[in-house]
Simulated assay, not measured.
Amino acid sequence: MKTDEFVTIWDINKAKETLQDNARKTPLVKSFYLTSVTEANVYLKLENMQLTGSFKFRGAYNKIAALTTVEKEHGVIACSAGNHAQGVALSSKLLGINSKIVMPETAPQAKIDATRGYGSDVVLYGQTFDEAKEKCIEIAEKTGRTFLHPYDDPAVIAGQGTIGLEILDNMWDVDTVIVPIGGGGLISGIAIALKSFNPNIRIIGVQAENVHGMKSSFDAGEITPHYEAPTMADGCAVKVPGDITFSIVKELVDEIITVSEDELEQAMKDLLQRGKAVVEGAGALSTAALVSDKIVDYVKGKNVVCIISGGNVDLERISQVCEHFFSSEIVE
């Protein structure tokens, strides 16, 4: 099955037009620190500076803008651990559409508060994203609201793919792009955009060791759920990837690796201390992978872009990360 049956470069270019005056073109900045420790030319695509603090705004706005008049009148509903929720909430507010969001009870309080702050009705249900998703679909069927899938939707994927176009606008000779994966919408869109321009660009996905449904599916050659324990990369804690996104990833992504919670915490600290970037756990997945020894062949001597997917993190989490490393330094 070819990816162009789902999303084409034309769809991504159309999404770019839709988002032209509504989403931010986020910075692509060189990280001299990461460049020095990896022997690569490392750039950070700072989607933590996107509206709502995450790349999710792109896909949400592109999808909602494309709804029919009748669909808009009935309102929309979405499920999310936080970032898709905020993207849907703000997009709905800007487009004058009523929205309801189902979030896991374990979602970070900062994301819950922000979603409500954008005007959405928030329903807390279940301990995981997948439990919240089941409840969301149930409500959609009862109310007639349009269900907005967080990743397994062509319009959402096309919106996320605009990140790939922005990378090329700034750096046409990119060799490797490292992308966090949850359900797969982000990496699917970016892979289509970049490989439509140059099939030799390497796309590397990264997930947490604790939850990596896409990697387990990628390795098995078929959708294979995976969930062991919670992860600080809560924005990417998806046990079962999408059907569409899995098909795209299977065809276009070169490799998927996992990182530990310790590696994630280190990456969050380094981005804060050395990169002056506030990021959530999911946002640090790409740099955690970069400094590991798992993708050296894709990195050394290459032009590398790490997608910093989001910055919606509780202050308590930042405090815990800082305290952990401060305590370690005292002990040493």
Rank of each mutant, 00 (worst) to 15 (best):
Y33K: 02
K239E: 15
Y151L: 02
F218S: 00
E251A: 09
K63H: 10
E329K: 10
S309A: 14
Q320D: 09
A66F: 01
S217K: 00
G87Q: 13
G189L: 14
Q50L: 11
I318F: 02
K56S: 11
T18C: 10
V291S: 06
D297E: 15
E47D: 15
A110G: 05
L285M: 07
I163S: 02
I318S: 02
P104G: 04
E280P: 03
I295E: 07
L186V: 05
N22H: 15
G96L: 06
M103F: 13
E134K: 15
K269R: 13
L44T: 06
C236F: 03
P241W: 01
I244T: 05
H226A: 01
F57L: 10
F197S: 11
P225V: 00
D234V: 13
N98W: 07
V174A: 09
S327R: 14
H84S: 04
G59D: 09
Q160G: 05
D293P: 00
W172Q: 12
Y125V: 05
A289E: 11
Q50M: 13
G205C: 06
A140Q: 13
I307S: 03
S99P: 03
V29D: 04
P241H: 03
L19T: 12
D21E: 13
E255Q: 13
K45H: 05
E255H: 10
A140V: 08
V240N: 00
V37E: 08
V122C: 09
M49V: 04
P150E: 06
N83L: 10
V291P: 04
V331G: 00
V29G: 01
T35G: 11
T115Q: 08
T3N: 14
E71A: 14
H212D: 07
A237F: 09
I12H: 05
T231D: 03
L165D: 12
E323K: 05
D293S: 14
D297F: 08
K250D: 00
V305D: 06
I157G: 02
A60V: 04
M1L: 09
T52L: 10
G213L: 02
L46I: 12
D153K: 01
E47H: 07
T106I: 08
V291Q: 14
I139Y: 03
H149V: 02
G182A: 03
Q160E: 13
I178T: 07
H74M: 12
T258N: 09
T162R: 01
F55E: 04
G310P: 02
K16R: 12
T128F: 15
K100F: 10
P225Y: 00
D130H: 10
K14E: 13
C79G: 00
G311P: 03
K63Y: 12
S31Y: 11
T52P: 02
G185V: 04
F197L: 08
V37S: 07
K294V: 09
P230H: 07
W172K: 11
G235N: 12
G161W: 13
V304R: 05
